[in-house]
Amino acid sequence: MRSLPLIFLGVFFTLALSWVGIVLVGHLQLGDLEPASAVLVNQEAEPIAGVFFRDDRTGAYRMGANQPGEPVFPIQLTGSAQRGKRIYESMGCIYCHSQQVRRQGFGSDFERGWGDRQSVPRDYIHHERVMLGTMRTGPDLSNVGLRYSELWQHQHLFNPQITSPGSIMPRYAFLYEVRPISEDRGPSPRAIQIPDAFHPGPGLEVVPTQRAVDLVAYLMNLRQDYDLPEIRRAE
């Protein structure tokens, strides 16, 4: 093994192999997923079970089409929620929170109420940045939008101890403005309610900045509560 070209060919092809196998084939298999209706139909517009159906004439397996008139999922995030995703990314939420529900029987994701169906690749097709996460210092957030109110989210971000005593989540108070209540206009309609024990003081109010509003909009949109053809929720 002395020849540079030979060593190079070897190291090139070994890495090329895994790139083709994992990334390229993964892309070929998953790269063209589109939003789908809960039930797909065959060419006679009859509902089918799952994603593929057998074409009676040719005998080939073909992918079903979306059911006309039915809503398709997942939905693209827009506006505030879209911007909030960037805040989620820049604060590094991914290092403590996953966004993936594992199947029942593998871990305790269902039992913890993190979801009632497994996450599938189609759930993520609109995510410009897929943040599945690898750590659960905090709960999974795939369906956090279904679990709490906007007020809860704001209070929790302002100081997690308000809603979750003992939590080791950092506070994101810097996303909120603590300011004196205006004497002319009175309290801001956007100010959030803070329990007395955590309130910054009399005559002050806590108003979310645009970033906090966006982040909460994003969190409220984290939900996998729709059916997809490849996976139906347990009845």
């Binding site: 994992i22 990334v23 993964g26 998953l30 790269g31 997923l33 410009e128 940045r129 897929v130 599945l132």
Partner: peptide
Amino acid sequence: EPARGVVQSLTNWWFAHN
């Protein structure tokens, strides 16, 4: 030119572990 969906996660861990 981010890949679509979970192909990102595949690329991520192909890269990071390597």
